[in-house]
Design a protein around this nucleic acid. Structure first.
Lengths: 118, 118
DNA sequence: CCGTATCCCATTAGATACTG
DNA sequence: CAGTATCTAATGGGATACGG
């Protein structure tokens, strides 16, 4: 039986780790192909991308659609449950940006602008 | 220079890890002594508690007040910056509780009720 | 009571090579 | 293009003992 101290722990299990929150965040702007994600998520490796997507899928936040064609095409999108995290993810993002501006000195940090999906 | 993909990464740096968010969450209900935190934060060790508090302090979310007396007394409280995370922390907590109820089967999980501070 | 210092283990993630 | 398999490196966190 899983034990948590509060709901916060649960959420952390779902979007914690190095990549899950970020990948989900990118999927909020619409479905993306694997290669596309690989391209727009900064520095993620193939292995971590797939692993991350599997975990998000298992948690029910992301769904995977496979097209049987050559070359292969797979598309990931956020589910309704995933979308329900959107406002929170946005707040976390805003808070962080605001925090960075207040706390870090100029030139001490940089927040990459998300590349637009094609 | 620190590089982030988006503000979300920044926030994760600040309240990520195993304990930071949780400890901050407990401090939102008012200042606490070290021993008190040690008692109410489930399963945290002395080492991790202190380490976590230092990190929160360095991030400016928590302040530390020391009373010069015997026996020693130290009190931690959340700063204004820390308080600004309160609504988000609460949403994360609510989302997680709601998620757990939807996703886990009964008896498969448990969310501990936070013990009241003395 | 509050905090520090080691030591050690488990988990997580990166690199690389390979398959359908 | 999408995904798997292995191996290795790095980090984070737990146990424990000690000091002011």
């Amino acid at each position: 039986m899983k034990k948590f101290s509060c709901g916060f722990e649960v959420t952390k299990e779902v979007i914690g780790g190095k990549w899950k929150g970020l990948v989900l965040y990118f999927l909020m702007n619409g479905p993306k192909r694997t290669s596309e994600l690989k391209r727009i998520v900064p520095n993620i490796t193939q292995k971590m991308l797939i692993q991350t997507l599997r975990e998000l899928e298992d948690s029910g936040l992301v769904s995977r659609k496979m097209y049987n064609q050559v070359p292969p095409k797979v598309e990931y999108s956020s589910t309704e449950l995933g979308e329900s995290l959107k406002p929170i993810l946005q707040e976390l993002c805003q808070w962080g940006s605001h925090y960075a501006e207040q706390v870090y000195a100029e030139g001490e940090f940089e927040i990459a602008q998300p590349e637009e999906a094609s």
